[in-house]
Design a protein around this nucleic acid. Structure first.
Lengths: 259, 259
DNA sequence: GCCTAGGTCCCGTCG
DNA sequence: CGACGGGGCCTAGGC
């Protein structure tokens, strides 16, 4: 694949690859890819300056840079799941040659941020053309726990009735608001993993926002388990904990044992 | 680069590339790369099953998969900063050929998780050898705000003195614990961005944990700004807000105006 | 290992 | 837009 072919009118190539390209060739391939909504994959030795919500400098080293058609820019080093530097979607990316180095610059405003990658060596560039794809289907979210409780409120306790979901208050949104068999109002806070201190604070805050309106306002946190410190705070605050594992909320799980 | 060369004893290649490889060739290159701590970069049409903390299925589509020497596996689609699927560092990755498809499987235990990528087509594979690199230097963190206040406590207010940093309580860790000019104890909670409801809850929680030990225990939240609801809650709880922008905490900033 | 809290968190949702 | 809270959050730091 020669550079001259980039702008040919035939069906665009799914993959364009260049190994140890010259600065000029790299520049042309990256600029072509940016213009044509391609996904770019650069492996090279580079240093990185970032200035924005925070600021950082990363000394020269081998990294993998990905530029997506939506403006996202991601730089990975050899370890860890998180990129070492990045720019979010809708960033504006451009390539330059400066002082004989290839420079990739990514900017956005609001917040104002700038990421500058200076390559002293490029080992390879892949320019890819991904087709559209389906959305992922994810299960076992907190939302599903809510769905289950809406459908089967007796899981919380006998006689429990739903009043409102995602109820807004001055101090945030209550997952589920309901009442028990004695007509006491109940605030339910759902968590899909082990309850920690901040979760209790959150529930307490919601309770505070409504206690002027109700007597006997109960607060119940629902989750698979709870940490020791959180349990202590829970008791002190006279809140309650109900055990419910998110995997039980998958559709089709047999819940007759709860009845 | 032929497959036979993979195991040669000469200096390993920085980059090995294969365009539209056969299943067998892809298998060999990936297996070789997994064994030799190389970073692998696969562009192909695949479907993905995940089962673990949650569960998901992703229908076939074009994606970019990265496998790092530390076991990290990342799958990107054409948009967004976040990978659509992943496995964290120290996952165990292996490659297979099953029903004429290439299958990449990544597992970890604790929590038990399994990610399975089935490729129906592979457009390209890059196998890379990144060298070690320096750590990133990041500025404007909450920690730096703390450093500044330790050094110049008068930024909080005239006469303020530090007692302890990262003070542990039953209900969490206080950023800075100190006393004012009247010997009242002061809890300082630092935030690098706009204060929200949960930040106030956090400070309130710390105050609660110590109020049995002190009279006149003040709570001060420090940050660049505060949301309206958070400000209301702040006043109700008789807590205080002090404005301090994290960028002021960069080394070398002139702070004489505060004195 | 558990627990706590920050993050250039990202991201969706709702006002 | 801001604001709020979830996330397979990830990651670092204590204990």
């Amino acid at each position: 694949m020669s550079l001259e072919d980039f702008n040919s009118s035939s069906k665009p190539d799914k993959v364009i690859y260049s190994k140890v390209p010259s600065k000029e060739k790299a520049f042309n391939l990256i600029e072509f890819s940016l213009k044509n909504d391609r996904l770019i994959d650069i492996f090279g030795k580079c240093e990185i300056d970032y200035e924005g919500r925070a600021s950082s400098y990363l000394a020269p080293g081998d990294r993998l840079t990905i530029v997506k058609p939506d403006g996202t820019l991601i730089v990975h080093k050899r370890e860890k799941r998180e990129p070492v530097n990045w720019q979010p979607p809708k960033s504006r990316n451009k390539v330059d040659i400066s002082n004989e180095n290839l420079v990739l610059t990514s900017r956005r405003r609001k917040p104002k941020e700038k990421l500058e990658i200076t390559y002293e060596k490029i080992f390879s560039i892949s320019s890819l053309l991904p087709e559209d794809e389906k959305e992922i289907q994810l299960n076992r979210s907190e939302e599903e726990m809510g769905d289950l409780i809406i459908e089967k409120p007796w899981i919380i306790e006998k006689g429990f009735k739903i009043i409102e979901r995602e109820k807004e208050t001055d101090l945030g949104y209550i997952d589920i608001f309901g009442k028990d068999k004695n007509q006491n109002r109940v605030i339910i806070e759902l968590k899909r993993k082990k309850i920690s201190l901040s979760d209790i604070s959150q529930l307490k805050r919601y309770q505070k926002s409504l206690k002027k309106d109700y007597n006997n306002l109960r607060g119940v946190i629902v989750g698979p388990s709870i940490s020791k410190k959180a349990e202590n705070l829970l008791k002190e605050e006279k809140l309650e904990f109900t055990k419910l594992k998110p995997e039980v909320c998958d559709l089709g799980t047999d819940l007759t044992e709860f009845q």
